[in-house]
Design a binder for these strands. Structure first.
Lengths: 180, 180
DNA sequence: AGTGTCTTTCAGTAATTATTGAAAGTTTAA
DNA sequence: TTAAACTTTCAATAATTACTGAAAGACACT
């Protein structure tokens, strides 16, 4: 069914998937969908990964909650065909975005509450200081991720290629701002 | 032992920890260490989190493999005292770095092999195209993360505060490069 | 209304992962 | 060398998470 090489890739996606917020099987599903040009049916997936039809159904549901797959229909065919919901970049973005919503946002909200509360003991005062640090870090991450979403593909590419020049640009920017 | 508020924070760290590469208990350990100004002994941790002494030992070992804790000694005292290994920012960095090593690097290596191999079928050709995309994305991420490590704290702060101005700076850089 | 084709659900079970606690290991000091 | 104070290890077990397959649901066609 799968060539050894493609199977190799899919298995690897499984291992990685479990570190990115879904389980091994779901990681494999993503891998499988991504390297197949044609959309696959639930049965294709079950056969390729040797898992039950029910498991595929649950996996697809999960992937839809992450907005990572989309459904195709072929006229005269009742089956659903699944394909990745966008380019590799789009998918990576969706995962980030979704994790931000599920992890960072609730954490920020908890931290804000804690920071606003009155610190009674020395221990709590120090705790608040640390929480403030975490809060600031997460807020920065959030802002940046929003910013990345907003950039045009061209700007993004420009930014991505910046690489080793980041520091030069920063220095440049600092100089310019000082002049203003 | 823990004030309700601090316990709340620690529990939350547990939930988050399980999404960041360690398990719930280890997440709680990090939370606990981070909000305590004084280093804690293994027994302090076991008591605070209501887990066994052995579990603390394993957790510490894991955290050391991530370089997230450091050991203190008090003269005349044989116990080991544990504290976070650096500021919040340092810790976040360590986690990123470690995950890069464990997840991204092996993936890049697999992808490179696959991309160099000869594609026999159409299916494999498409698969390679997609793998190339993933490869490029991961390589960019890797380069950027290396770059961030290299920046001075001042430059970093500058970059972090950039936020909504990213696009302006990119445009600026594009203009300048064109002139050169 | 009935049948065929497909999808979803979920109780039961399998697989995996985390935890305990007793035993073994380490280090210091007398 | 023995003991005391600590840490680490790991086999047994508990807790959690994932998977199966049979049943129910949905839908289109006749």
């Amino acid at each position: 069914m799968l060539t050894p090489r493609i199977e190799n890739f899919v298995l690897h996606c499984g291992e990685m998937g479990s570190r990115w917020g879904f389980n091994r099987t779901i990681g494999q599903m993503v891998g499988l969908l991504v390297i197949n040009e044609q959309p696959l049916t639930a049965n294709d997936i079950a056969d390729a990964l040797k898992i039950s039809r029910g498991n595929v159904s649950m996996g697809i549901k999960e992937l839809q909650s992450w907005q990572l797959v989309r459904v195709h229909h072929i006229p005269g065919d009742r089956k659903e065909y699944y394909a990745p919901n966008g380019s590799i970049w789009d998918l990576a973005n969706k995962v980030f975005e979704e994790r931000r919503k599920r992890e960072i946002d609730p954490t920020l909200s908890l931290l804000r509450d804690q920071i606003l509360a009155e610190a009674n003991t020395e221990q709590e005062k120090y705790a608040q200081k640390q929480m403030q640090q975490i809060h600031d870090l997460l807020e920065t991450v959030t802002k940046w991720s929003a910013e990345l979403q907003r950039l045009s593909p061209e700007q993004l590419q420009s930014l991505m290629k910046l690489g080793a020049q980041v520091s030069k640009v920063i220095d440049l920017k600092d100089k310019l701002l000082r002049k203003n």
